[in-house]
Every structure is written in structure tokens, then in C-alpha cells.
Design a protein around this nucleic acid. Structure first.
Length: 1018
RNA sequence: GCCCCGGUGGUGGAAUUGGUAGACACGCAGGACUUAAAAUCCUGUGACCCGCAACGGUCGUAACGGUUCAACUCCGUUCCGGGGCACCA
């Protein structure tokens, strides 16, 4: 009987579906285990072989845990809101809900093909109103909460109101250093307004609400966005290139828009500290740590040296109006080495302090910087800057230092100003050198003048009262001095900024917020979900608002009689990460109508035990879900404060692209002969022939191994064309490198006939410059994507080899965490392995076992031999260990070894083989189930007992030791494992090979590592 | 510019704590079976040297250096590839 994978896989998938084999209950006496994949965005392109890598890994682990006796939750769903569907709607007029539904169905079909054990009754879609009802609900919880810095947790805003009513905000100052609501900052003076209970009572509703907004975890403020007037829309950072839009090349300017934010900065400390409780890779933790960017140092006030009189008079400023410049530094110890100060060009003081002489230069520089994107400023290597003409006074040394501005200082971090210490900071050093600013040496002989001293184990020189101290002690001394003298204070800073939480788009969750007179009022819970209205146009609204602003019937809320009320709905929608920040909770209790997830249920499932996904979400999704989890925990809705206990990052499967090289034109000086038009000597001058040049010939031409003239001759020959250079030396050949579909290339050889049919016969009349009669393609490893024609569809492979082969091959490719290019070639080997496994059950004579006679008595019930048991138990140990450490590629090879060895032993004993099937079931469930049943088992292999490893079957009494002489292996000797050092030495010394290498000398010593090796040192 | 990950045969990769480098596959070459093909099976396969051969030797994990009885593994320097970034003071 043949291994008929198509029939087998179809039959078992059907049966598992009918019996609800993957249905998971929320109550069980078994221990729980929660395995989760990062859910996919259902793109129109469908799945390619890169997607299932992580899904297969998690599926194997989920099945393994189930066999090990756990109640395993392993759900799947769709992150269904997103920009591509909206763009598709703009381009094709298809409603995003329609295209999304269609894409989801495609995804589902493709996923089902691979035989995953998802409990599809728990499927969720973030765009489903039944789902986003709860996204909106959680948003309202965040809106109605604030972060109490005293208790370090989120609390109800009602508590805060009570505090204000009794004591004002004396104990709870406004968390952000800058006000987000402009009206308030205008009304209140200075940075940190403190008000009393009496003040609070006297405020009108608008002022009270504006103040509360400064505390809410989800709040409204103003932020700069990339605004493109021509497109009438807001652009993402990577849609802006060199100050113009990626599409169309229109100018892009910064525009302030009202935006929603999440006050994630309040959680910075907890997000940082709790990383210690997680089983994530160090690289991942490092990325989050860098993003949070906690640093400690000092904020120091530098008084301005008497500001230029003309300016002071012109602006009517007195001395008291120049309070100084605050800088943040992590190296207060280097204060005596400050040679200049640098402000961000956007810094509010720049305008005030610039001297008339410098004004023109400064204005020009500031204008130039404003035209540059944040990306550009970041990647810029060239030093640029500009002197303001003003000076500041170092509070410790009293020294006057020049104040510069430069794009390398960012307005959004710290105070937007730095004290520059060239001898201690590389960037400051380069800046000083570039502009010829004198450098003060505070490191004595250690500083040579050519580069800054970053080493923190040095002693300070030339540093006033901290001279002779080490970095750490000096920093403490300086901070104490600053605090004592009122010139600054100790400060902890974070790189992280609050998360922008609104988008000017249609296809996202609407905010359950209504505005009236500048005050945001939340909808009642009973009014949720606030559903997306139907629109006919997806064009942006006025003033950078989203498409929702165009639907006045939805935006404006009249009274029952239709009178205008001034009530207006929020027109922003939530960003992509809103729905994905909490979805792992909904899977636990997906159909609950009362609450997003019942507390008892979330108490049972608790954290996600294993989360598998790519590193691209390292700082976005993973930080936001951690914050949402912490907030929900603080508010008592769940009982754990970290969502994902263990995280495994799957590598990217890269595409292996193939290229053809098309000849496009020959140019002679100013004239161009275009290959597409004329110059073709065939019957019809109008006809054009695309001509393609095989890779090696192209490469030889690039390497100048063949001349331009030779290449032109080859082209003329292949194309039957008559390109003739007017001047033998002065002509250029233009060639175009084009991606070609990898599916019509065998290895690197182009299937010419398929190529002619490709792209709807676009190249049906193509002609080729071949090598040895073949067209060879160029190759490159790059991202797998449809536009690069390097995607491979899993459906094709499943159809050809079966799901079991596909699953195992994806794993066999290499470690899950590692990125690697896809190559279909090796899949044959894995398929052969499954066929070989099958032959252990069905020999040449036909079926050894059938359902009617499940066991062949005389053979199957034979006692297994010691050899067979050894193979089995070695395999049990290896598979279990490898599965536990996610080393699936080595597990697959262990299966291959086991089958090879059992074939060698001609073993077809049921007691051996059926245990092997259980081990294999997580990896290749279909064939395992089929053979398991063929062996006469009535239950499913999905719930079989996992084989238990027994040491006794694999213990050896001796080992073949490698014998090295001076570290180089020279021979092998089999020695009993319990041999003593002395016995080993005797055996080794008696060996002829060892004697040969000793050459009569006595060894210095003999190193004997039990069960490892022996080394003879001469 | 900064951060992270990686570099091992023709290819994907293995070597889990420093202890026989190249497991397991792919590919390739040769052979068996077959009229033939497919399928299957067997043998060989890092490079180089010596030799009729068994055996043996030298080199070899990006490059160079170091630690060690012993280094793909640890340390230092350099080069190359991939990914990320908010120049974070």
C-alpha cells in the first residue's frame, strides 16, 4: 500500500473537525498551557511560506503539551483593521469590510491545509463590532483612569477628583512637563501649576476637564504630524523621503493636530523593571530597554551671561526674564569640562537669545532644519550647527561658554539642550573640532587630544572640587552641590514618549467620545459598540481630519427633533495596535457579552505561556500590550500584570529572487537607439522584440571579460537586429534587471516556454542571448514579497507533498529563530523520510497490518530486542529535549535517524513503532494518526500517552574514546566507562599509535575527561 | 553615526556546559533493479599531499592575534552580510 497522503490528510482533517478534536474547555482538572501566535493581518496576497513558520512551531509545541497532559489553549484570529484595506478601497471602491472578509476566507483555507490544531470556535477579528466593542470599552477605562505616582498604579479618575476637592493637586502634580491642552497652558502660568481645593472648586467645567485631561491614561493633546497638503492627508514617517511624499513627491510639512495619546510614559519604570520576570531573549529585552531608555543624571541650570543689550531692550526684557537654560546630562561629573552648550534648533529660547549679528545665520539654519525629517536628522553624519552669539555661565566654574544650535540635539528629549563636553563625549568632540571651539581637558594624560574619553574608570583632573575623584563619586558630589545651591537637581529621564493613539483614517475603531465646547464626553457603556458608519468616499476630511469627518449625519448629533446641539463625534479612529493590545485576553472568553473576559476565566488561563512571533513587533505591539495588561491589572480586571511569559522570535524567511536582464537601448553620444522601437531588421519595423541576456554573459560584460562590442554582436545575433555603433568607442548599452517569478525557474535555469507565457504572454516574442543553450538567472536574497515575484505558496507544496511533509520541511530548514532564505529543493528528503516511515508498516509484500488484522502476531508481538529499545529510547530523549528547547530542526533529523536505524534493524514491532508515532504526532499529525489507528488503537493519537524515557535501555558500559596527542585526535580506543585514571593511562600508553607519536618520550600528563575524551600531553 | 543578530563543505544546517568539526538532509558522481523511465536501494562526497593500496599526513568553522592540555564555542582587533533606530547627551 502506498503512502497516499492526500487521502489520509483529507480524511483525518475532516474527522478531527467533526469530532471537535481541537475544542478547548475553560474548565479542566489538567494544568493549563496557553500557546499563542502573533495574529496575522489578512493581506490580499494570502499566505506565503514565510508565514506558517511560527505557526507550525507553535502548533507542534501545543500538540506536544497536550500529549504531556496539559489543557492547551491554542487560538487564532485576525488583526483585521489596517491601512492596506483602506487603500484598496480608495483604489477599487470595494468596502474594506468586504475585501477583509474575502482575504480572511483565503487565509483560513490556506491555514486549514496545513493541519493546525486551532480551536476555531474562539476565532476573533479586531474589525468585528462584537470585538471592538471591548476595545472601545477598555479605551474608556483608560480615559477614566490616571496614574497615581504615589501608589505607582492606575486608579479611577473619580478618586483624583476627590483628591482635588480636598487638597488640590499639591501632592499630585501634572505629570507631563509640557501642557498638551493649549487653552490651559495659556490660562495657567508657568510649568507646574499647583492649585488648592478652593481653586479647584472655583474652576469652570472646561478648566476642570482640561486639567483632568492632563492626568488621564488616554488623553487628548496636540502633536506634530507629517502633513501633505497636495494629498490632503497625514503621512507616516517612512512615507516621507527627503521632505517630500513618497507617492507623488509632494512637499510635506509638520502640522499640529489634536491627537489622542496613551500615557505609557507613566509605566516606563514598571515596563523596565518587569522585564526581569520574563523569559524573553536578551536581544528582545535589550531592544525594549533601549526604547524605554531610562537614564539617570542631573538637570542643571546655566544662567545666561548678560544677554545682548540691544536685544533685551528691543524685547523689553529685564535680567529676571532670562532665567537660564536647563540642560539634562547623564555625566554631571564632567561639568568642569563644558566648553559650549547646544540647543535644539526648535528650542523656545533660540529666538530670544540670538544676537542681531547672528540672527540671519540662525534663522537660515533653523529653517533648513525644519525642512528635514526626523529620519534624516537621525541618519546624518555630517556635522552642522550655528552659533547664536549668546553665552551661558557654568554654575560651578563660573566660566562663560558659547551657546550653539545643532540638529543633533532633539527638542523632544530631556530639556532640548545639552552641555557639551568635548573631552568626554565623542560627538561633542567632533563638533568642537569641526567649529574650532577650544577643548578643556579634564582627564589629564589620559586625554591625548585626538578622541574623547568615554571610559568611566578614569580620574578627573582640572575639575575644581571634584579633581581627583572617580566618575561615580564626582557625579554624586556635583548633584549634591547643585541641589544645595539651587542650580539643578537629580533627574531620571526616559527616551520613551507617550504613544500617539489616533489616526486620521476610516478603517479602524471609532472613539466612543463626543465633543462639546472643547470638552470630551465619553459614551455610556450601554451605547457600545459605536459602530463604524458606512461611507462612500474614503477621502480625507477637512483640515487633516479623517474620512469620518465627511459624514455629517454621523458626526453631528442633533436632538430628537433634529435641532443642532453642538455635539460632535470624535472623527479620529484608533491605530492598528489598539485591537492587538489585548486580543490574547479575548481568546480566553471570546463569546462573553457581559465583559471583555470573565475574571474567573482569565484567572484560569492566566498569562500566555508561549508567544511566538517576529522581532518587528519588538517595541510596538509588545510594549503596548504590556502597558494595557498593567493598566487592566491595576484596575482589577485581570490578575496578572505581564501578558507574555515566554517569547520566541521566529526568523524571517527570506525570498530567493531570480532576475533576467533585458536589453533596453544603445546610445551613441546624444542619440539613443531604443530596443523597443525600430532598428530591427525583421520583416516588420514596427514590431519589437524584448531581448534578454543570460546571467553569466551579463556578468562577464560587467567584469569587462567581454567587450561592449562583443555583447552588441551577441545581441544582434540573438535578436536578429542591426544595432551598429557609429563610433566603436563611444556607445553605451543599457540593460535592465527584472525580477522574474521564481516559480518558472528551475534552480537558476529559466523555463523559457513558461517565461513566454508569464504575465499574460507579455514576453511571448522574447529572444535570448543564451549560454550553452540555457538561460541562467541572476539571484539575490531579499524580503519575500509579491512585488519581487519570489513568493512560494504553501498550497502548492501541500498539494504536491502533503501537509505533514510541508510542516516537517519548514522545521527542518533550520532553527526557528534564525532568518534564512527559502529553497524548495530539500523538501524531497523530508518526503522520502515519511515514505520510509510508512514502509516500516508496509513492506514490499503489501500491508503488514490492516484494520482487520491489526497486528501480525508472529512479528508484532515479538519481544523487542535491546537494540530496538535503545533506538526508541534514545529517540524519546532526543525528541523531548529538542522539542522543549524549540530545536525543531534537530528533532526532525532525530526522527530520520530513528527511522533509518529501525529500517536497518528490520523492526516492525508494534510496541516500538507505536511509541515512535506518538513522538511524531506533533510534527506530522496526519500520518501518525493514520498509522496509529492501523495498529488497532481505538483512541486518537492526539491524546495518546507520551512515551516515557527509561535510562536503562540506553546505558552503555564502554565508550570509544578519541585519543588526542597534544590536542590533535590521533586514534580511538574503546574503554570501560568506569575506568579509573590509572587504568586509562595504562591502556593509552600501551597503544601503538600513541607510542608512535610519543616517539620514545614520556608524556607530561594524560588528561582524561570521563565520557568525553583523552588527551596525551607531551 | 548608534544598537542587535549572524558568517561552518557546492547548498540548508549539526556540534546543548570549551572536549572526535561537518550529524541529518539537498545536490553531485558511480553502481543495483528496469527494455526504458519514475520510484527504491547501495557506495562515495571539506580541501590538499603521499602512495598500488590499507593506512597515513597537512590545512580547515570570515581574517588576524590571545587564553587553554584542548577553541566553531571564551577574550581582543578587523572585514563582510542581514535587521532595527527616536544622533538620547
Amino acid at each position: 500500500m502506498e503512502y497516499n497522503f492526500r487521502e489520509i490528510e483529507k480524511r483525518w482533517q475532516q474527522q478531527w473537525k467533526e469530532t471537535g478534536a481541537y475544542k478547548v474547555s475553560n474548565s479542566s482538572s489538567k494544568p493549563k498551557y496557553y500557546v499563542l501566535d502573533m495574529f496575522p493581518y489578512p493581506s490580499g496576497a494570502g499566505l506565503h511560506v514565510g508565514h506558517p513558520l511560527g505557526y507550525i512551531a507553535s502548533d507542534i509545541f501545543a500538540r506536544y503539551k497536550r500529549l504531556k497532559g496539559f489543557n492547551v489553549l491554542h487560538p487564532m484570529g485576525y488583526d483585521a483593521f489596517g491601512l492596506p484595506a483602506e487603500q484598496y478601497a480608495i483604489d477599487h471602491g470595494i468596502h474594506p469590510a468586504v475585501s477583509t472578509e474575502k482575504n480572511i476566507n483565503t487565509f483560513r483555507k490556506q491555514l486549514d491545509n496545513i493541519g493546525f490544531c486551532y480551536d476555531w470556535d474562539r476565532e476573533i477579528r479586531t474589525s468585528d463590532p462584537e470585538y471592538y466593542k471591548w476595545t472601545q470599552w477598555i479605551f474608556l477605562r483608560l480615559f477614566k483612569s490616571w496614574f497615581n505616582r504615589k501608589t505607582k498604579k492606575a486608579e479611577s479618575i473619580d478618586e483624583l477628583i476627590k483628591i482635588f476637592e480636598t487638597e488640590g493637586n499639591i501632592n499630585h502634580e501634572i505629570p507631563n512637563s509640557r501642557f498638551q491642552i493649549s487653552n490651559l497652558s495659556a490660562a495657567a502660568d508657568l510649568k507646574s501649576p499647583v492649585f488648592s481645593a478652593a481653586n479647584w472648586a472655583s474652576f469652570d467645567e472646561f478648566t476642570q476637564q482640561s486639567i483632568l485631561m492632563e492626568y488621564r491614561l488616554a488623553y487628548c493633546g496636540y502633536g506634530e504630524v507629517n502633513w501633505c497638503e497636495a494629498l490632503g492627508t497625514v503621512l507616516a514617517n517612512d512615507e516621507v523621503i527627503n521632505g517630500v511624499s513618497e507617492r507623488g513627491g509632494h512637499p510635506v510639512v509638520k502640522k499640529k493636530l489634536r491627537q489622542w495619546y496613551l500615557r505609557i510614559t507613566e509605566y516606563a519604570d514598571r515596563l523596565q523593571n518587569d522585564l526581569d520576570t520574563l523569559e524573553w531573549s536578551d536581544a528582545m529585552k535589550e531592544m525594549q530597554t533601549n526604547w524605554i531608555g531610562r537614564s539617570s543624571g542631573a538637570e542643571i541650570v546655566f544662567k545666561l551671561a548678560s544677554p545682548p543689550a540691544p536685544l533685551r531692550e528691543e524685547k523689553g526684557l529685564g535680567d529676571e526674564a532670562t532665567p537660564g537654560v536647563r540642560v539634562y546630562t547623564t555625566r554631571p561629573d564632567t561639568i568642569f569640562g563644558v566648553d559650549f552648550m547646544v540647543l535644539a534648533p526648535e528650542h523656545e529660547l533660540v529666538e530670544q537669545i540670538t544676537t542681531p549679528e547672528q540672527k540671519a545665520t540662525v534663522d537660515e539654519y533653523v529653517a533648513w532644519v525644519k525642512s528635514r525629517s526626523e529620519r534624516e536628522r537621525m541618519a546624518e553624519k555630517k556635522i552642522s550647527g550655528c552659533f547664536t552669539g549668546a553665552y551661558a555661565i557654568n554654575p560651578l566654574s563660573g566660566k562663560e561658554i558659547p551657546i550653539w544650535i545643532s540638529e543633533y540635539v532633539l527638542a523632544g528629549y530631556g530639556t532640548g539642550a545639552i552641555m557639551a563636553v568635548p573631552s568626554g563625549d565623542e560627538r561633542d568632540h567632533k563638533f568642537a573640532q569641526y567649529f574650532g571651539i577650544p577643548i578643556t581637558n579634564i582627564f589629564g594624560d589620559v586625554y591625548k587630544g585626538d578622541e574623547a574619553i568615554a571610559d568611566k574608570n578614569v580620574t578627573l583632573y582640572n575639575s575644581g572640587f571634584i579633581t581627583g575623584l572617580k566618575v561615580k563619586d564626582a557625579a554624586e558630589e556635583v548633584i549634591e552641590w547643585l541641589e544645595d545651591n539651587g542650580n539643578g537637581e537629580r533627574k531620571i529621564n526616559y527616551k520613551m514618549r507617550d504613544a500617539a493613539f489616533s489616526r486620521q483614517r476610516y478603517w479602524g475603531e471609532p472613539f466612543p467620545i463626543i465633543w462639546k465646547d472643547g470638552i470630551a464626553y465619553p459614551l455610556k457603556e450601554s451605547e457600545l459598540p459605536l459602530e463604524l458608519p458606512h461611507v462612500d468616499s474614503y477621502k480625507p476630511g477637512p483640515e487633516g481630519e479623517g474620512p469620518l469627518a465627511n459624514i455629517s449625519s454621523w458626526v453631528d448629533i442633533p436632538t430628537l427633533d433634529g435641532d443642532p446641539t453642538g455635539l460632535r463625534r470624535e472623527t479620529n479612529t484608533m491605530p492598528g495596535y489598539a485591537g492587538s493590545s489585548w486580543y490574547f485576553l479575548r481568546y480566553m472568553d471570546p463569546h462573553n457579552k457581559e465583559i471583555f473576559c470573565d475574571r474567573e476565566v482569565s484567572d484560569y488561563w492566566n498569562q500566555v505561556d508561549l508567544y511566538i512571533g517576529g522581532t518587528e513587533h519588538a517595541v510596538g505591539h509588545l510594549l503596548y500590550s504590556r502597558m494595557w495588561t498593567k493598566a487592566l491589572y491595576d484596575l482589577g480586571y485581570i490578575g496578572f500584570n505581564e501578558p507574555f511569559k515566554k517569547l520566541v522570535n521566529q526568523g524571517m524567511i527570506q525570498g530567493s529572487s531570480r532576475f533576467v536582464y533585458r536589453f533596453t537601448s544603445v546610445s551613441f553620444g546624444n542619440s539613443i537607439q531604443d530596443a523597443g522601437k525600430g532598428f530591427i531588421s525583421d520583416s516588420n519595423e514596427e514590431e519589437s522584440y524584448p531581448i534578454f541576456i543570460s546571467y553569466s554573459i551579463y556578468q562577464k560584460y560587467l567584469d569587462k571579460e567581454i567587450s561592449k562590442r562583443d555583447l552588441l554582436n551577441l545581441i544582434n545575433e540573438a535578436g536578429n537586429t542591426t544595432f551598429i555603433p557609429v563610433d566603436e568607442n563611444d556607445f553605451e548599452i543599457a540593460l535592465l534587471k527584472i525580477h522574474v517569478d521564481v516559480n518558472i525557474v528551475d534552480g537558476i535555469e529559466l523555463d523559457i516556454e513558461a517565461f513566454k507565457r508569464w504575465r499574460n504572454y507579455e514576453y511571448s516574442n522574447a529572444r535570448f542571448v543564451l549560454e550553452n543553450g540555457k538561460y541562467i538567472c541572476g539571484t539575490e536574497i531579499e524580503k519575500m514579497s509579491k512585488s519581487k515575484f519570489n513568493t512560494v505558496n504553501p498550497d502548492d507544496l501541500v498539494n504536491k507533498y502533503g501537509a505533514d511533509t510541508f510542516r516537517m520541511y519548514e522545521m527542518f530548514l533550520g532553527p526557528v529563530e534564525q532568518s534564512k532564505p527559502w529553497d524548495t529543493k530539500g523538501i524531497e528528503g523530508v518526503h522520502r523520510f515519511l515514505k520510509k516511515l510508512w514502509r516500516l508498516f508496509y513492506d514490499e509484500a503489501g500491508p503488514t497490518w490492516t484494520l482487520a488484522a491489526p497486528t501480525s502476531l508472529e512479528r508484532a508481538e515479538d519481544e523487542p530486542t535491546a537494540e530496538e529499545l535503545k533506538v526508541l529510547h534514545r529517540t524519546i530523549k532526543k525528541i523531548e529535549e529538542d522539542t522543549e528547547r524549540f530545536s525543531f530542526n534537530t528533532a526532525v533529523s532525530a526522527f530520520m535517524i530513528a527511522v533509518n536505524e529501525l529500517t536497518e534493524l528490520k523492526c516492525n514491532k508494534k510496541s516500538i513503532l507505536e511509541k515512535l508515532l506518538v513522538l511524531l504526532a506533533p510534527y506530522a499529525p496526519h500520518i501518525s494518526e493514520e498509522l496509529w489507528r492501523q495498529l488497532g488503537n481505538t483512541g486518537s493519537v492526539l491524546d495518546a500517552a507520551y512515551p516515557v524515557f527509561e535510562e536503562k535501555y540506553v546505558t552503555e558500559s564502554s565508550k570509544s574514546y578519541p585519543i588526542a596527542v597534544n590536542g590533535k585526535t590521533r586514534t580511538e580506543i574503546t574503554i570501560a566507562l568506569d575506568a579509573t585514571q590509572q587504568q586509562v593511562e595504562e591502556i593509552v600508553m600501551a597503544d601503538a599509535v600513541v607510542q608512535k607519536w610519543l616517539g620514545g618520550k614520556a608524556p607530561k600528563k594524560i588528561i582524561y575527561v570521563k565520557n568525553r575524551m583523552i588527551n596525551v600531553v607531551i
